[in-house]
Amino acid sequence: MTKKVALVTGASSGIGEATARELHRRGFTVYGAARRADRLQRLTGDGIRAVAMDVTDDDSMRSGIAEILADSGRIDVLVNNAGYGSYGALEDVDIDEGRRQFEVNVFGAIRLAQLVLPHMRERRSGTIVNITSMGGKLHTPLGGWYHGTKFALEALSDCLRLEVTPFGIDVVVIEPGGIATEWGGIAAEHLEETSGGGAYKAQAAAIAASLRSEANANRNSPPSVIADAIGRAVTAKRPRTRYAVGFGAKPLIAARVLLSDRQFDTVISRATGLPRE
């Protein structure tokens, strides 16, 4: 029986690396993608195939998909994991940086879906997994561009699911909570560079401290929790449309539904230690 083939973007570390390993363990032929293929050496040593792919470059994405199809003849699973968090006050973040945040987190994911869908439709099967965040359902201060991308990807995933269901294709959204990766530290550094010295410096200091909090880090779930959810989703006969997994995901999403906007604002402000007037 021909092995099913999976493409995982952002596979050089964190959730992407864990997912590539989990799908390989489950018997998939796995292609791990990153801008620099040399950063995937840990994976290639374990039998996972490396693909150099920049999700902001159309030629790079086309070339990567063509390489996989020429090599394996099929793509059964696409895991859109590549992304980052651009933090800073909306007043401070350069508009070009806002555009880049959408290019990486949204347009790259949908463009890859466009590229794999003709092959999935031809086979009348396939699964597209979009990694959003609990931040695609709720908001935090100084994370407007990041949350905007995740809210957008949630909506696009819902529309895509309706469009491709008649062709036997599943669209699954994964909504991670707090995960123990480098993401928080990188976002905190970007926040301090962007808003650490201006009108929003007090807020920036509070949010950066929250992102780096050792207490949060100790509570955060390992990337394997997300990888396992993805593994279950892509092997299920009828996967759920959404999987909220990892520290805080389910209770915070539920709180956002139950509380009013003002009430939720208060909860988030207190949780992140924002200064008050």
Rank of each mutant, 00 (worst) to 15 (best):
M1S: 13
T2A: 10
A6C: 10
L7A: 00
S13C: 08
G14Y: 03
I15N: 01
L23M: 05
R26E: 02
G27W: 02
A34P: 01
R36Q: 14
A37L: 12
G45L: 11
I48G: 02
A50F: 07
V51M: 05
D54P: 05
D54C: 08
V55P: 04
S60H: 09
R62P: 06
S63I: 08
I65S: 03
I68M: 07
S72V: 10
S72T: 12
G73D: 06
I75K: 06
I75N: 02
S86W: 03
E97M: 11
E97V: 15
R100I: 12
V104Q: 07
N105F: 09
V116H: 02
E122I: 11
R123M: 09
R123V: 04
S125H: 12
T127M: 02
G135N: 10
K137Q: 15
L138D: 03
G143T: 09
W145E: 05
E154A: 07
A155Q: 13
L162T: 12
E163C: 07
G168M: 06
I169S: 04
V172T: 05
V172I: 10
V173Y: 00
V173C: 05
E175G: 07
A180L: 14
T181I: 05
W183C: 05
G184F: 01
T194G: 04
T194D: 06
S195V: 10
A202R: 12
A202D: 15
A202L: 13
A204I: 10
I207M: 13
L211I: 07
E214A: 15
A217I: 09
N218D: 15
S221L: 02
P223W: 03
P223E: 00
V225N: 01
A227D: 03
D228K: 15
G231R: 08
V234A: 06
T235H: 00
R238Q: 12
R242M: 04
F247W: 15
A254W: 03
R256G: 05
V257S: 08
R262Y: 06
I268K: 06
S269A: 15
R270D: 13
A271T: 11
T272Y: 14
L274C: 10
E277N: 14
